[in-house]
Amino acid sequence: MPYREKFTGELQSLVNEVIDLGKLCYDRLQDVTKLLSMDDIEPARELVSGDVEANKKEYNINSQAVTLITTQSPVATDTRIIISSIKIAYDLERISDNISNLAEVRKRVKITNEKLLLRLRTMEQLASLMLKDVYTAYLDQDTSLCKEVYERDEDIDSLFVHVTTSDIFEDSDLFVSGQSQLCAKYLERIGDHVKNISEHVYFVITGEKIEKID
């Protein structure tokens, strides 16, 4: 299509920004739960300060999106791409915040309960895989993968319930117990945000709201 090359380029650039933000979040998510049991607090500190970049990126995405809407009068798919870029960027930024929150916990306590750490790591991996898969779903325009990722959040939710209700993970120190529960909560929130992203991607591809697989 020869027309509107500038606009097409700008749309692509917006999408690339979102993908970059996604990659940043993915990288930050990797092994964040390992931090919780490390002796060294430095990596945790670094991870916290890394949130600044994510915020900057989200701001830029919003700016670019507003400019595109104002100057280019988008319709149909173009509109969905722009609106969804804003929404996905928001969810990614929240994911980054939650990752920072997890790192903050390490600044306060060191988690040593192996069973707990294993569950948290599992939640982290599940979320990480979901994020990877939703990216693939977008690349391949795969609506069924979107739906699958949407469903898989349930696994993280179940783990969250398990971690917070079972007494295997209780610690004698109430403060540590509390912080452990917080970790589980942050990971559960990350899962929710990836679920939201899968909804937005589904919307871009089909123009409709995602429905559960029956």
Binding site: M1, Y3, R4, F7, T8, P74, V75, A76, T77, D78, T79, G207, E208
Partner: peptide, 19 residues
């Protein structure tokens, strides 16, 4: 027609990809 047209040609036309 403008939010989610059924035909690809319609989509291309309304988004200005061809005229």
């Amino acid at each position: 027609i403008f939010e989610n047209p059924r035909d690809q040609r319609t989509e291309d036309y309304v988004s200005g990809r061809f005229g």
